[in-house]
Amino acid sequence: MASVLIYLVLIASVGAGLNAGLFFIFSVCIMAALARLPVPDGITAMNAINEVIQSPLFFIVFLGTAVVALAVIVIAFLQGTPGSGLAMAAALVFLAGTIGVTIVVNVPMNDALAAAAPESAEAAALWGGYLATWTAWNHVRTATSLASLVLFVLAYGRMAGA
């Protein structure tokens, strides 16, 4: 069972890293670029991104990492081997800070943006707040994905050294 856990931690490390990179590029580049566009164009572009990102590959990486993180919690708890505590912490950080924030904050904001007509006054009012709030919460997702990656790597190191 220990060998299964170490492989799950390795897989979760890769998934957390991929998510951190995705969210990082939104935080440092994509949202700032969208903010430079005229409001209807920015909204239209963000809505297009939100549609395109919903691909099988994205869901495998995003939700697959969540499933692996859940498995890590269960197996690490049951085994209690060196690195198990770090692995559980990594999984919890990813689930709460990356998956949880996405579900509770970013997706509802995306849905509200998609429901607004890009040329409307309502959409223009929504856009300014959307950019600031969505991006701030995306910073949280970036940080928690990165923190999860670091914790998974530390857990892997402890497990490999045991």
Rank of each mutant, 00 (worst) to 15 (best):
M1H: 06
A2K: 05
A2G: 14
S3M: 07
S3C: 00
S3G: 01
S3H: 02
V4K: 03
V4A: 15
Y7R: 07
L8H: 04
L10Q: 03
A12H: 09
S13I: 05
S13Q: 06
V14D: 05
V14H: 01
G15V: 13
G15T: 15
G15R: 09
G17S: 08
G17P: 04
A20V: 05
A20S: 13
A20P: 02
L22S: 05
L22H: 01
F24W: 11
I25G: 05
I25W: 00
F26V: 06
C29T: 15
I30L: 10
I30H: 02
A32S: 15
A32V: 10
A32C: 00
A32N: 14
A35W: 01
A35Q: 06
A35T: 07
R36W: 00
R36D: 13
L37A: 14
P38V: 03
P38S: 05
D41P: 00
G42C: 03
G42D: 05
T44W: 00
N47E: 11
A48C: 11
N50M: 12
E51Y: 04
E51Q: 12
V52Y: 05
S55P: 11
S55L: 09
L57S: 12
L57D: 07
F58I: 12
F59W: 07
L63P: 00
T65M: 09
V68C: 11
L70H: 01
A71F: 12
V72W: 01
I75S: 03
A76T: 07
F77H: 10
F77N: 09
F77M: 01
G80A: 13
T81K: 00
T81Y: 05
G83V: 05
G83W: 06
S84W: 01
G85L: 09
A87H: 10
A87E: 12
M88A: 14
M88Q: 14
M88I: 15
M88E: 13
M88T: 12
A89I: 08
A89L: 15
A91L: 03
A91Y: 01
A91C: 08
L92Q: 08
V93S: 05
A96P: 02
G97E: 07
T98C: 15
T98Y: 06
G100E: 10
G100V: 12
G100M: 10
V101F: 04
V101Q: 05
T102Q: 02
T102W: 01
T102E: 03
I103C: 02
N106Q: 14
P108E: 12
N110G: 15
N110S: 14
A112E: 15
A117G: 03
A117N: 13
E119G: 04
E122V: 11
A123K: 04
A124C: 08
A124P: 06
A124D: 11
A124K: 06
A125P: 01
L126A: 09
W127H: 04
W127C: 08
W127N: 05
G128N: 11
Y130Q: 11
A132V: 15
A132C: 03
T133E: 04
W134S: 10
T135D: 07
T135Q: 10
A136K: 11
N138I: 07
V140A: 09
V140P: 01
A143H: 02
L146P: 02
A147V: 10
A147F: 01
S148I: 02
S148N: 06
S148T: 04
L149S: 06
L149A: 09
L149D: 09
V150A: 12
V150N: 06
L151C: 08
L151F: 08
L154M: 10
A155G: 14
G157C: 02
G161Y: 02
A162M: 12
